[in-house]
Design a protein around this nucleic acid. Structure first.
Lengths: 107, 107
DNA sequence: CGTGTAAGGAATTCTGACACG
DNA sequence: CGTGTAAGGAATTCTGACACG
């Protein structure tokens, strides 16, 4: 858990390779970024860098698009899922704090 | 085990990013390839592609070099380790076969 | 809306070579 | 031996724009 971003999350893949990996055109990949579906980092001189997780997201997006789902709908789903996770995260955090004070001692 | 090369082994990182990640110059990285310490794949048009595992190997190589170890020595160590692993692999395979015929039934 | 494409420029990468120690 | 560097070319990536449906 104290790990610094695992392989899956590290942004190290250039757009050309992402294109090969996903089968999407560079145009499409850049457009999905414009629509805020994907968030590459940038190298010092401005080149986009993606993670394996980004690649997986892009493949999910590609599937949704094939089903005719529009980008703004995909975005809404993403945001909904994210908010849900945040609520879950806060709940876990709280559980941890309560345990720390009143829970079972294990040290 | 039936997984197709995990994130760690997939060759998707270009030399510029490997250079950033390892602190080595591109010249050094290419030279270590020439000395057969590292084996990038190539994109259709000839660009080198590395995996995270390659990046780790390069960092090990960098450490060895700082200690003054020469590339051919690093190579020898690599080969020794590899042969040892192969022997181990064959042993495990054999153990599996023996078990399959004479071992405990578990199906 | 989602994607293709031509345009022009900037950054990346490649190879083979010369240099130095 | 290990690494830097300048050289020239090829491939990559970037942005903003026009096109089409």
């Amino acid at each position: 858990m104290i790990q610094e971003t695992s392989y899956k999350e590290r942004k190290v893949i250039t757009i050309g390779i992402v294109s090969e990996l996903t089968g999407l055109s560079e145009r499409q990949i850049r457009y999905y970024e414009e629509r805020k579906l994907i968030f590459p980092e940038r190298s010092p001189k401005g080149n986009r860098k993606y993670s394996f997780l980004d690649v997986e997201h892009l493949m999910d997006i590609a599937n949704k698009r094939e089903e005719g789902v529009q980008t703004f709908e995909i975005r809404q789903e993403m945001l909904r899922r994210k908010r849900k996770q945040e609520r879950h995260g806060r709940k876990e955090l709280l559980r941890g704090e309560i345990n720390a004070r009143f829970g079972i001692q294990n040290d």
